Amino acid sequence: MLSQIAELDEFKGAWIRLSQLRPEQLSTLRKISTVESVGSSNRIEGNKLSDADVEKLLSRIRKTSFGSRDEEEVAGYAELMDTVFENYELIPLSENYIKQLHKIMLKHVGKDINHRGEYKKLPNSVAAFDSKGNEIGIVFETASLFDTPRLMEALVDWTRKNLEDTYLHPLLVIGVFIVHFLAIHPFQDGNGRLSRALTVLLLLKKGYGYIPYSSMESIIELNKEGYYRSLRLTQKNIWSGKTNYEPWLSFFLSTLQKQKRHLEEKIRLMKPDTAVPIDLRLSRTAVSILDLFKKRPQWTSAEIAEALNLNIETSKKTVKSLVNAGYLVKHGITRGAWYEGN
């Protein structure tokens, strides 16, 4: 887990360098990711629309008329994600805002008009069904109607305090928040979809700015069995106070790791005439060296070592790797060599 967190945080810092990508390139990445996220998050809950159907619907969306509940759900979730992407800095983590986001998500679904934006009024334990749609048993007992408001207040308060603190890593705090949110199941419907939107919201608020450009939901869809299994293993004793968070946090961090690597691959596969090739796995030393060239166009290895308080051999080795990767251009030979940005 520590290794996964370190990899994600390194990528989080490296993402800042993607300002080199043109706005239209980032727009394309985000558009593709949004379609994948909207389609996958709804299909996880039983929606039947394909990514192609989702893209077609979003391109001709009319808020007055939809052909099915599936289309209503997709339109609402798309609007929810747009709200999160555009306003995450202004949306605090609070029960009131969580209810508002739930209301946005279900705003087009006529069947849900009586409970959208409100905590559940009927029991909603997670059940298993056979191929004919008949319930065959309860998989997980969610929080009772009486306990839900109290548990949500405590969960939001704990999460907000721990995200502000530095004792626990924010990725762990977000993971714990999500597994408890789904255990409470505070709304009559839409808890799974809302939990994934809240995950995106909290990640963006903690500085993981690359999240809108690669779909986390599509990765979960590809491993639905692992998703539900890890949730149940952690939630098994969640009301007893003896919770084993490892199964869920392991799945959660692995999902974020796959999301990040998927985005890396997308960028690397961009054609040279449509994107600037960027190696997002540069070391921190390499990034620091490249930053020097933003302040001054020409440097020697010795000057770089002195400026960054590096061992001269480390400076030479890192500069050589940057030359080989095409980031720097070498001029001169031996002791008289100097470098400039490419």
Rank of each mutant, 00 (worst) to 15 (best):
D147R: 12
S214V: 07
L198C: 02
F187G: 04
I184R: 03
I136F: 03
F187E: 01
I113R: 07
D165I: 06
T148H: 08
L151H: 03
E135S: 15
Y213V: 13
Q100P: 12
M152Y: 06
L168A: 08
G133K: 00
G209A: 06
A197D: 11
V126N: 08
L194S: 04
V200N: 03
H169V: 14
L155V: 11
Y167S: 13
F140Y: 15
D147V: 08
L172H: 13
G117E: 13
G117A: 13
R150G: 01
V156L: 11
R196L: 12
P170K: 11
S131Y: 12
H169C: 09
P186D: 07
P186W: 05
S131L: 12
R193H: 09
S215G: 12
K161F: 07
S195A: 14
Y208Q: 11
V179G: 06
T148I: 13
Y210W: 13
K111P: 13
M216D: 04
E141V: 00
D189T: 07
L122V: 15
I138Y: 09
D165M: 11
L202V: 05
L194P: 03
I178H: 00
V109G: 09
L163S: 12
V139L: 15
P149V: 08
K111N: 13
D189M: 02
H102F: 09
F129I: 04
H108M: 09
D147W: 09
L168T: 10
